[in-house]
Each structure stands twice: as structure tokens, then as C-alpha cells.
Design a protein around this nucleic acid. Structure first.
Lengths: 144, 144
DNA sequence: TTATTACATGATAATTCTTATAAATAATTC
DNA sequence: GAATTATTTATAAGAATTATCATGTAATAA
């Protein structure tokens, strides 16, 4: 299941003439297997045992490459470091304000918002971003 | 007009027992008069002439205080520093991917998205964030 | 009003996240 | 397989933000 998407991503990279390296493959693999919205550091630490010599810069470099090709999205929140999400289908995120957990939330794209925004502001709209914040079930319980 | 909101904000601070200081007032005043989504550094520089001795830390500290009280929102984007927006009425932002301009965009709150998210994920939803990205009129033209 | 207390400021250092640089290495092309 | 080009690694540099702490200032109580 995850492997199919991974394979797709590898193919996309081949078509755009990005070289496949062991590090690159491992980062992709991690992203597609955990589906966990990790930070660059999460990835770095997770692959430490497999690639003891890998540099943090490599993680950042490759995440940027993946982003440019369009197979990975960067999510930025105020307080901490960026998180990275492999793009499979369109979905939004709901984030726990207490523990930081990120859960996928599927919802039809807000196309009508985009069209209205175009009309009102005169922008040419490319895309939008939405996140929902709240307390997850665990943290709701813990609050008592 | 802006002054009314400013006054409201000052009152809110009084009620929550946050002390009023000249620096604090100046930062608030700047936020409510420009309505410009400035960065911390923008504010720091704008008040340099009035408060030559003010520290950057003071700007950051107070923005955090305002955020905690709820009169200011922090907007974070991937590449650069946070921007701060005084909370007046509900509105969204449309951001130019080329020049970074931020324009307010009024749209009814997406309450139905919040309710659905609650049902699907079991979260207790507090709020959400949405931004629209595109090319502003100036940059659309410049692209030719 | 004065003394006391608690919070705010300012200067600077420290931290964190991310990017740049340059030499070494690995992958592709011919 | 040699030449070319991209990638990795290690490290330094950079930018944004936060921590520290001595000093100053506002609120509170006597």
C-alpha cells in the first residue's frame, strides 16, 4: 500500500532526472512508511542507525528536492520546526494544541473559496492551506 | 476607527492584569494603526525613533503576551519570520507567492468544516486557520 | 506617601532551525 | 573505463527567537 506510493515517487524522481541515492531512497521510504509528518530532525534520527554518517544537510537538501518535484509538502507552524508530509491525496490536517499530534482529515477541496477570493482580490489563485486546531481525544481526557 | 479597537485591546489587557507600559502601548498602537501584518523586526524598526533603547526581546515578549491574551495572532510561513495580526473581525488572508504581500479576505467562517472535523476525528475543535496563495495583480502583470 | 513586591525592560548570550561552502565521493554519460 | 556532473559530508555561517539577569518601573500595601 505505502510501497505503491513510494514506487510512484521514485518514478517521478527518475522522470525529472533526479539521481537516486541510498540516502534519498531511505528518506522517501521513511516518509511513505510512517506517514507521520516528521520534522527534518525526526528523519535524521530515524535513519541514524542505517546511515551513521549521513549529514543533517542531506536531509534538508533532499526534502527540498522532493518539495520542488512536488512529492512532498512542507507544513510550518509557529513554535517549532517544519514538518514534512508526503503528498498522496488531497487532505487537510487537524492538530492537537496540547500535544502537537497531527491527524489527517479528508474534506472536499474548498474550491468555492478560491474562486471567490480570485473575484474579490484580483489575485490569480494557485492553492490554499487550511488547518484545524483543537484537543485530541487523549488530551481532552487528560484535562480532567 | 482603529482607535476603538486599540482601546478595546487596552481594556482587555487591563482586565487580565497585564501592566501597561509605554513600549507595550506603542507596539499595540503600531499594530492597530498600520493593520499591516508586520514581523517582529518591522515593529522594532518602526519604533526605533520613538524608543531608541527598546530591545528586540521586548517586542517578542510583548507579542507573546498579546498572543496569550488573545488580541494578536501569529501567522507563520515557511521561509521567513512570523507575522503578527491584530484580531479584530474574522477574516482570512490571501498571500502573493511572488512578492509576499498579504491581503485580508473576508469570508464567512468555515463552521461546517469544524463540526465535521470534530465528528470524524474526535477532537474538540478550538479554531482553524486558512490561507490562500496566488499571484497578486502587480505580479501577474510583471510576469509578462 | 513610602516601602515593598512583582513584573517589565534592555543588553547580551545562547539556542534552534536552516542554509551555504568546499572538498570528497558517487552516479551518469560517452 | 574516463570524464562530467550531481550528491554527500562536515563544518561554518546565518537568521529568528528565546533565556538570562541586572536594573528599572509600575502596582500594592502599609
Amino acid at each position: 500500500m505505502a510501497n505503491e506510493h513510494l514506487q510512484e515517487a521514485v518514478n517521478t524522481l527518475k522522470n525529472t532526472k533526479v539521481r537516486m541515492t541510498p540516502q534519498r531512497h531511505a528518506i522517501l521510504e521513511y516518509l511513505y512508511e510512517t506517514m507521520n509528518h516528521p520534522t527534518a530532525d525526526d528523519i535524521y534520527k530515524a535513519l541514524e542507525s542505517k546511515f551513521p554518517n549521513m549529514s543533517v544537510a542531506t536531509v534538508y537538501n533532499n526534502l527540498r528536492v522532493f518539495k520542488n518535484v512536488g512529492i512532498v509538502k512542507e507544513l510550518t507552524y509557529g513554535d517549532s520546526s517544519s514538518r514534512f508530509d508526503c503528498v498522496t491525496t488531497d487532505h487537510y490536517h487537524i492538530i492537537c494544541s496540547d500535544c502537537g499530534k497531527i491527524v489527517d482529515f479528508h474534506y472536499p477541496g474548498l474550491d468555492e473559496v478560491e474562486t471567490l477570493a480570485e473575484q474579490v482580490t484580483g489575485f490569480q489563485v494557485h492553492n490554499h492551506r487550511m488547518e484545524i486546531y483543537g484537543s485530541c481525544q487523549d488530551c481532552k481526557v487528560a484535562a480532567h
